[in-house]
Design a protein around this nucleic acid. Structure first.
Lengths: 113, 113
DNA sequence: GATCGCTATGTGTAAACGAATATGACGCTC
DNA sequence: GAGCGTCATATTCGTTTACACATAGCGATC
Protein backbone atom coordinates (compact mmCIF):
# COMPACT_ATOMS: atom_id res chain seq x y z
CA UNK A 1 0.00 0.00 0.00
CA UNK A 2 1.49 3.33 -1.03
CA UNK A 3 2.29 5.87 1.63
CA UNK A 4 2.85 9.58 1.66
CA UNK A 5 6.12 11.28 2.47
CA UNK A 6 6.44 15.03 2.63
CA UNK A 7 9.04 17.70 3.09
CA UNK A 8 8.96 21.41 3.67
CA UNK A 9 10.76 23.78 1.35
CA UNK A 10 12.29 26.77 3.08
CA UNK A 11 14.36 29.60 1.73
CA UNK A 12 15.80 29.35 -1.77
CA UNK A 13 17.20 25.88 -1.40
CA UNK A 14 16.67 24.38 1.98
CA UNK A 15 14.42 21.44 2.66
CA UNK A 16 13.56 19.49 5.73
CA UNK A 17 12.01 16.05 5.51
CA UNK A 18 11.37 12.86 7.46
CA UNK A 19 15.07 12.07 7.88
CA UNK A 20 16.12 15.27 9.60
CA UNK A 21 12.98 15.28 11.70
CA UNK A 22 13.64 11.75 12.90
CA UNK A 23 17.21 12.73 13.75
CA UNK A 24 15.94 15.64 15.82
CA UNK A 25 13.60 13.28 17.66
CA UNK A 26 16.43 10.86 18.40
CA UNK A 27 18.65 13.67 19.66
CA UNK A 28 15.84 14.85 21.91
CA UNK A 29 15.18 11.34 23.18
CA UNK A 30 18.80 10.43 23.95
CA UNK A 31 20.19 13.87 24.81
CA UNK A 32 23.13 13.45 22.50
CA UNK A 33 23.98 13.99 18.84
CA UNK A 34 26.28 11.00 18.70
CA UNK A 35 23.75 8.67 20.30
CA UNK A 36 21.10 9.97 17.93
CA UNK A 37 23.46 9.23 15.05
CA UNK A 38 23.97 5.67 16.26
CA UNK A 39 20.23 5.16 16.55
CA UNK A 40 19.86 6.35 12.97
CA UNK A 41 22.79 4.15 11.92
CA UNK A 42 24.67 7.07 10.44
CA UNK A 43 28.11 8.48 11.20
CA UNK A 44 28.43 11.16 13.84
CA UNK A 45 29.83 13.49 11.18
CA UNK A 46 26.82 13.07 8.95
CA UNK A 47 24.46 13.80 11.84
CA UNK A 48 26.49 16.80 12.89
CA UNK A 49 26.49 18.15 9.33
CA UNK A 50 22.70 17.79 9.20
CA UNK A 51 22.30 19.59 12.51
CA UNK A 52 24.61 22.37 11.34
CA UNK A 53 22.65 22.65 8.10
CA UNK A 54 19.36 22.95 9.98
CA UNK A 55 20.73 25.50 12.40
CA UNK A 56 21.83 27.69 9.52
CA UNK A 57 18.65 27.05 7.58
CA UNK A 58 16.37 28.40 10.27
CA UNK A 59 18.69 31.22 11.26
CA UNK A 60 18.38 30.06 14.86
CA UNK A 61 19.73 26.83 16.35
CA UNK A 62 17.35 23.87 16.60
CA UNK A 63 19.90 21.94 18.63
CA UNK A 64 21.93 23.30 21.52
CA UNK A 65 25.05 21.28 22.35
CA UNK A 66 27.31 21.40 25.39
CA UNK A 67 30.89 20.25 25.10
CA UNK A 68 32.72 18.71 28.03
CA UNK A 69 31.14 18.37 31.44
CA UNK A 70 29.18 15.50 32.89
CA UNK A 71 29.50 12.41 30.68
CA UNK A 72 31.52 14.48 28.22
CA UNK A 73 28.73 16.67 26.94
CA UNK A 74 25.32 16.40 25.35
CA UNK A 75 22.71 18.10 23.25
CA UNK A 76 19.06 19.13 23.55
CA UNK A 77 16.50 20.66 21.24
CA UNK A 78 15.82 24.35 21.55
CA UNK A 79 12.26 25.69 21.69
CA UNK A 80 12.42 26.26 17.97
CA UNK A 81 13.67 22.71 17.47
CA UNK A 82 10.81 21.27 19.47
CA UNK A 83 8.31 23.44 17.61
CA UNK A 84 9.63 22.30 14.23
CA UNK A 85 9.38 18.62 15.15
CA UNK A 86 5.91 18.97 16.62
CA UNK A 87 4.56 21.00 13.72
CA UNK A 88 6.09 18.73 11.14
CA UNK A 89 4.41 15.69 12.66
CA UNK A 90 1.13 17.57 12.83
CA UNK A 91 1.40 18.58 9.19
CA UNK A 92 2.22 14.99 8.32
CA UNK A 93 -0.87 13.70 10.09
CA UNK A 94 -3.15 16.33 8.55
CA UNK A 95 -1.83 15.73 5.06
CA UNK A 96 -1.99 11.94 5.30
CA UNK A 97 -5.52 12.08 6.60
CA UNK A 98 -6.63 14.52 3.93
CA UNK A 99 -5.11 12.41 1.20
CA UNK A 100 -6.33 9.04 2.43
CA UNK A 101 -9.33 8.64 0.15
CA UNK A 102 -7.37 9.83 -2.88
CA UNK A 103 -4.69 7.27 -2.09
CA UNK A 104 -7.19 4.45 -2.04
CA UNK A 105 -8.74 5.65 -5.27
CA UNK A 106 -5.33 5.82 -6.89
CA UNK A 107 -4.57 2.30 -5.77
CA UNK A 108 -7.79 1.07 -7.39
CA UNK A 109 -7.12 2.97 -10.61
CA UNK A 110 -3.66 1.44 -10.88
CA UNK A 111 -4.93 -2.09 -10.37
CA UNK A 112 -7.85 -1.59 -12.74
CA UNK A 113 -6.05 0.37 -15.48
CA UNK B 1 7.17 31.55 2.94
CA UNK B 2 7.71 27.81 3.26
CA UNK B 3 5.90 25.50 0.91
CA UNK B 4 5.02 21.85 0.98
CA UNK B 5 6.38 19.25 -1.38
CA UNK B 6 5.22 15.67 -1.26
CA UNK B 7 5.98 12.36 -2.83
CA UNK B 8 4.34 8.98 -2.82
CA UNK B 9 6.22 5.90 -1.69
CA UNK B 10 5.32 2.78 -3.59
CA UNK B 11 6.66 -0.74 -3.36
CA UNK B 12 9.86 -1.40 -1.40
CA UNK B 13 11.86 1.46 -2.86
CA UNK B 14 10.05 3.44 -5.48
CA UNK B 15 8.97 7.02 -5.11
CA UNK B 16 7.19 9.44 -7.34
CA UNK B 17 7.30 13.16 -6.71
CA UNK B 18 6.71 16.54 -8.30
CA UNK B 19 9.48 16.13 -10.90
CA UNK B 20 8.21 12.92 -12.47
CA UNK B 21 4.63 14.15 -12.37
CA UNK B 22 5.56 17.35 -14.17
CA UNK B 23 7.42 15.33 -16.77
CA UNK B 24 4.34 13.20 -17.36
CA UNK B 25 2.27 16.34 -17.80
CA UNK B 26 4.74 17.74 -20.33
CA UNK B 27 4.75 14.48 -22.27
CA UNK B 28 0.98 14.49 -22.33
CA UNK B 29 0.87 18.11 -23.44
CA UNK B 30 3.41 17.82 -26.24
CA UNK B 31 2.87 14.21 -27.29
CA UNK B 32 6.55 13.40 -27.15
CA UNK B 33 9.14 12.30 -24.61
CA UNK B 34 11.91 14.34 -26.21
CA UNK B 35 9.81 17.50 -26.36
CA UNK B 36 8.78 16.95 -22.75
CA UNK B 37 12.45 16.63 -21.85
CA UNK B 38 13.26 19.90 -23.59
CA UNK B 39 10.44 21.64 -21.77
CA UNK B 40 11.86 20.36 -18.49
CA UNK B 41 15.35 21.36 -19.58
CA UNK B 42 16.70 17.89 -19.02
CA UNK B 43 18.45 15.49 -21.39
CA UNK B 44 16.34 13.06 -23.37
CA UNK B 45 18.17 10.22 -21.68
CA UNK B 46 17.29 11.44 -18.25
CA UNK B 47 13.63 11.76 -19.21
CA UNK B 48 13.64 8.33 -20.79
CA UNK B 49 15.23 6.79 -17.70
CA UNK B 50 12.54 8.37 -15.53
CA UNK B 51 9.76 7.07 -17.79
CA UNK B 52 11.30 3.60 -17.80
CA UNK B 53 11.58 3.70 -14.02
CA UNK B 54 7.93 4.66 -13.65
CA UNK B 55 6.75 2.04 -16.09
CA UNK B 56 8.55 -0.65 -14.10
CA UNK B 57 7.46 0.83 -10.81
CA UNK B 58 3.76 0.55 -11.52
CA UNK B 59 4.00 -2.77 -13.28
CA UNK B 60 2.07 -1.23 -16.15
CA UNK B 61 3.26 1.47 -18.54
CA UNK B 62 2.29 5.05 -17.76
CA UNK B 63 3.63 6.19 -21.12
CA UNK B 64 3.01 4.50 -24.46
CA UNK B 65 5.48 5.40 -27.20
CA UNK B 66 5.39 4.83 -30.94
CA UNK B 67 8.58 4.74 -32.97
CA UNK B 68 8.73 5.86 -36.57
CA UNK B 69 5.70 7.11 -38.45
CA UNK B 70 4.31 10.59 -38.78
CA UNK B 71 6.78 13.14 -37.38
CA UNK B 72 9.08 10.29 -36.40
CA UNK B 73 6.98 8.94 -33.58
CA UNK B 74 5.52 10.17 -30.34
CA UNK B 75 4.29 9.25 -26.90
CA UNK B 76 1.07 9.53 -24.93
CA UNK B 77 -0.01 8.77 -21.42
CA UNK B 78 -1.91 5.57 -20.81
CA UNK B 79 -5.06 5.53 -18.70
CA UNK B 80 -2.96 4.60 -15.72
CA UNK B 81 -0.60 7.47 -16.49
CA UNK B 82 -3.43 9.96 -16.64
CA UNK B 83 -4.90 8.60 -13.43
CA UNK B 84 -1.58 8.92 -11.60
CA UNK B 85 -1.11 12.54 -12.67
CA UNK B 86 -4.67 13.52 -11.82
CA UNK B 87 -4.64 11.82 -8.46
CA UNK B 88 -1.25 13.19 -7.52
CA UNK B 89 -2.38 16.74 -8.15
CA UNK B 90 -5.54 16.11 -6.17
CA UNK B 91 -3.54 14.69 -3.26
CA UNK B 92 -1.24 17.70 -3.46
CA UNK B 93 -4.13 20.14 -3.26
CA UNK B 94 -5.78 18.29 -0.39
CA UNK B 95 -2.56 18.02 1.59
CA UNK B 96 -1.53 21.63 1.06
CA UNK B 97 -4.93 22.85 2.08
CA UNK B 98 -5.03 20.62 5.15
CA UNK B 99 -1.58 21.76 6.24
CA UNK B 100 -2.05 25.46 5.60
CA UNK B 101 -2.83 26.56 9.13
CA UNK B 102 -0.04 24.45 10.58
CA UNK B 103 2.37 26.04 8.14
CA UNK B 104 1.44 29.51 9.27
CA UNK B 105 1.72 28.50 12.89
CA UNK B 106 5.15 27.02 12.25
CA UNK B 107 6.27 30.22 10.57
CA UNK B 108 5.22 32.20 13.62
CA UNK B 109 6.91 29.82 16.02
CA UNK B 110 10.17 30.09 14.10
CA UNK B 111 10.10 33.86 14.09
CA UNK B 112 9.09 34.05 17.73
CA UNK B 113 11.32 31.29 19.15
C1' DG C 1 45.64 16.14 36.57
C1' DA C 2 44.22 11.94 34.20
C1' DT C 3 40.23 10.08 32.20
C1' DC C 4 36.23 9.84 29.53
C1' DG C 5 32.60 10.70 26.19
C1' DC C 6 31.08 14.00 23.40
C1' DT C 7 31.41 18.06 20.37
C1' DA C 8 33.83 20.04 16.48
C1' DT C 9 36.25 20.01 12.02
C1' DG C 10 39.41 18.56 8.15
C1' DT C 11 40.83 15.39 4.49
C1' DG C 12 40.92 11.98 1.06
C1' DT C 13 38.64 8.45 -1.48
C1' DA C 14 34.65 5.86 -3.33
C1' DA C 15 30.28 5.86 -5.17
C1' DA C 16 26.28 7.96 -7.25
C1' DC C 17 24.53 11.15 -10.46
C1' DG C 18 23.90 14.02 -14.55
C1' DA C 19 25.29 15.71 -19.02
C1' DA C 20 26.87 14.84 -23.25
C1' DT C 21 27.78 11.94 -27.14
C1' DA C 22 27.12 8.07 -30.34
C1' DT C 23 24.44 4.65 -32.73
C1' DG C 24 20.57 2.08 -34.47
C1' DA C 25 15.64 1.20 -35.63
C1' DC C 26 11.51 2.75 -37.37
C1' DG C 27 8.16 4.47 -40.75
C1' DC C 28 5.99 8.63 -42.75
C1' DT C 29 7.04 12.36 -46.12
C1' DC C 30 8.58 14.05 -50.32
C1' DG D 1 14.51 5.47 -51.56
C1' DA D 2 16.81 9.45 -49.18
C1' DG D 3 15.86 12.32 -45.42
C1' DC D 4 13.91 13.50 -41.17
C1' DG D 5 12.36 13.25 -36.33
C1' DT D 6 11.51 10.36 -32.83
C1' DC D 7 12.05 6.39 -29.78
C1' DA D 8 15.51 3.24 -27.77
C1' DT D 9 19.97 2.09 -25.73
C1' DA D 10 24.95 2.07 -24.51
C1' DT D 11 29.10 4.51 -23.22
C1' DT D 12 31.91 7.96 -21.64
C1' DC D 13 33.25 11.64 -18.56
C1' DG D 14 33.16 15.24 -15.15
C1' DT D 15 31.05 16.80 -11.04
C1' DT D 16 28.94 16.42 -7.06
C1' DT D 17 27.76 13.69 -2.93
C1' DA D 18 28.45 10.39 0.49
C1' DC D 19 31.35 8.04 3.59
C1' DA D 20 35.13 6.48 6.32
C1' DC D 21 38.96 7.94 8.81
C1' DA D 22 41.61 10.98 11.47
C1' DT D 23 42.25 14.38 14.99
C1' DA D 24 41.69 18.25 18.09
C1' DG D 25 39.32 20.52 22.05
C1' DC D 26 36.40 20.70 25.87
C1' DG D 27 35.38 20.36 30.93
C1' DA D 28 32.99 17.93 34.92
C1' DT D 29 34.18 14.00 37.49
C1' DC D 30 37.10 11.20 40.25
Amino acid sequence: MPSLSLRINLDPDGRIGPGKIELLEKIAAYGSISEGARQMEMSYKHAWDLVEEMNKLFGKPLVAAQTGGKRGGGAQLTQVGLAVVTRFRAIERAATSAAAQHMEALQSEIEAG
